[in-house]
């Protein structure tokens, strides 16, 4: 009997949290916003989401099969990439946009660099950038909510216009825009769930949104309404809560995370205020993703008992 005893080195217990449980929690957090996008953008949204997810998962399976690696699609990570990609697309995109985007995200951004844990950029955001650069017209044709969806502009370009939506509409999500970014409320609810489950910490979203809010407030001449409008419109909540918090492409230590998130907030503000594009969230996160290794190098924590 005794020879059957397992002998291994300490520690002998492990927490319940697994990669799978973390990824599943992220999907759960995104469910309300997903359902809402289908409610406001109807079949367009449903089709885009399904195509992005199915393509992402299938691409991962095929690549792992070719590389003769264990197939890990059950860890939900490809599902998240597909879903987040769809969230970053206008609901009216042609069917091949989510397909090409998902293939690019999984094949090039994730697996070409070594697969899970090795991508230096957020795959969904990198794919979005690739799509915007390649098909700018399709990627910026927004439609307004409802059954008879008509073309509209993203709220970010409507400030000061008579068509400007109310802040309440923006907060709830009754506006045009990318598929998953419209409802700040539901994205925040999902974020609170992730905080509660210990999947994310407040560090990155707090610093990102805080930096952006303070800069916008000061440079808009202390215009509180405009600041609030900026906070709840565009992809800020989606980016700050779900994309900038991507483990792999953000720093591992708190100080690094603060600098990373500050950079995200600063660049988002600069692009939105002075840049040629209406939206700056995805590019600011991608830029800070690339800066992550150097941030980590200069923010190695002082060890306990180490020289001050």
């Amino acid at each position: 009997m005794e020879s059957k005893l397992i002998v291994s080195s300490s520690p002998h217990i492990r927490s319940n949290q697994t990669v799978k449980s973390i990824m599943r929690d992220v999907v759960i957090a995104l469910v309300p916003a997903t359902l809402y996008s289908v409610y406001i953008f109807r079949m367009n949204a449903l089709l885009t989401i399904l195509l992005a997810i199915i393509t992402a998962v299938a691409t991962e399976a095929v690549i792992q099969k070719i590389r003769k690696k264990p197939i890990t699609i059950s860890d939900w990570s490809a599902v998240i990439t597909g879903l987040l990609l769809a969230f970053n697309l206008p609901a009216s995109v042609p069917w091949w946009i989510p397909v090409i985007g998902a293939i690019f995200a999984i094949a090039i951004v994730k697996h070409a660099f070594g697969g899970l844990g090795q991508n230096f950029m957020n795959p969904a955001l990198a794919a979005r950038a690739f799509l915007v650069a390649s098909w700018p017209v399709e990627m910026t044709s927004w439609i307004s909510p409802g059954v008879d969806a008509v073309s509209t502009a993203t709220p970010l370009t409507l400030w000061g216009d008579k068509m400007q939506p109310s802040i309440m509409d923006l907060f709830i999500g009754n506006v045009g825009g990318s598929l998953g970014e419209t409802s700040a409320l539901l994205l925040i609810i999902g974020g609170i769930y992730l905080l509660y489950r210990g999947v994310i910490k407040i560090t990155i979203p707090g610093m990102y949104i805080g930096t952006f809010a303070i800069l916008t407030f000061i440079f808009s001449g202390f215009d509180f309404t405009f600041t609030l409008y900026s906070l709840v419109s565009g992809g800020l909540m989606l980016g700050a809560i779900y994309m900038a918090t991507d483990y792999v492409s953000s720093p591992v230590n708190t100080k690094g995370q603060l600098i990373f998130a500050f950079g995200c907030g600063l660049i988002t503000f600069v692009i939105r205020t002075y840049g040629g594009m209406a939206e700056g969230v995805s590019f600011s996160i991608l830029l800070m993703n690339v800066a992550t290794p150097i941030i980590e190098r200069y923010t190695t924590p002082k060890i306990f008992g180490g020289a001050k």
Partner: peptide
């Protein structure tokens, strides 16, 4: 007694957060 097989690191930083010595 059985400890799960390790999978790939996702760089979540939780080990950094809990280390009482501030190691990486």
């Amino acid at each position: 007694a059985i400890i799960e097989e390790p999978s790939l690191c996702i760089k979540c930083g939780k080990c950094v957060e809990v280390c009482p010595i501030n190691l990486l």
